[in-house]
Amino acid sequence: MTSPASSAPWGSAPDSAASEGSAPAPAADRPGGARLDVRGLRKVYPGSGKSGGGSGAPVEAIADLTFEVRPGELVCVVGPSGAGKTTLLRCMAGLLPATSGEVVLGESAITGPPEGMAVVLQEYGRSLFPWMTVAQNVELPLKEKGVPKRRRAELVRDTLAAVGLGDVAGAYPWQLSGGMQQRVAIARAAAYEPRVLLMDEPFAAVDAQTRFDLEDLVRALWKRLGITVVFVTHDIDEAIYLGERVLVLSARPTVVLEDVEVGLGPDRDQLGTRGTAEFARLRTHVYELVQQAKQGVRSLAEARLTHAVGGSDA
């Protein structure tokens, strides 16, 4: 039903993907990325005695998470399902108060949604305002931020063009396919000119081909804007393809199993990069870690990896 409508913007997607390799050229006036520190983060959901059929006992979602994301870095977070990935992201976004520990953005600890942070959620269909057009959705946070009108128009136009949606600015989100809706959410985040971008399994609900296009789009935007990106996913290949580093989480209550450096270089493409030996090695390694995590392994020392890692790890 949506395929005819979506064909045109898809057509433009490879362009943006292609431009990634040729002209990253970071502009001079970029705010740049900010540093993000997660220190001893712990989150326990209180037992719900009242309302709802939830069990009474408190649930420890995150046991103890400590890691840092350097300014301008793209870090992916993977883990088995139910590993508290979304909880982590909501804590980082200031949407959920931590039980203990803290998240520090730049110099200051996060207590609520901080300035200079944008979020792209998994439920694209529900994170866009259905009563606003695509352009209005992108513009609303800018208005609230006090961006002057002319600059707003410029940002909306440029970012929509950058995600290949220049021609549907006046459409409503629900008139677009799922992949296009997620592009709108990405455009809204990019236009906001954040210093940190958090993405929570943004492509979990789109089809495989669209997903490749969107992955390239994220890499392209990241390089162009020079911002810090934290990308949560359950897809191991996606994490390796996108990230400069991959944080592998344990099952609940969550700790970091391993912080894996991805040595795939700055320029990546779907065919070439995924075909390299390094990609395959990382993929095997992270896959094994996630399998171990599912079985309840909570530290690298405990993990029994059948494929040797040490040698090739630079």
């Binding site: 200031g94 949604p113 979020v119 529900r126 305002f129 809204r188 906001y192």
Partner: peptide, 10 residues
């Protein structure tokens, strides 16, 4: 999700 979005964008 919309409420979260509104909060996240302050």
């Amino acid at each position: 999700v919309l409420r979260d979005t509104a909060r996240a964008y302050r």
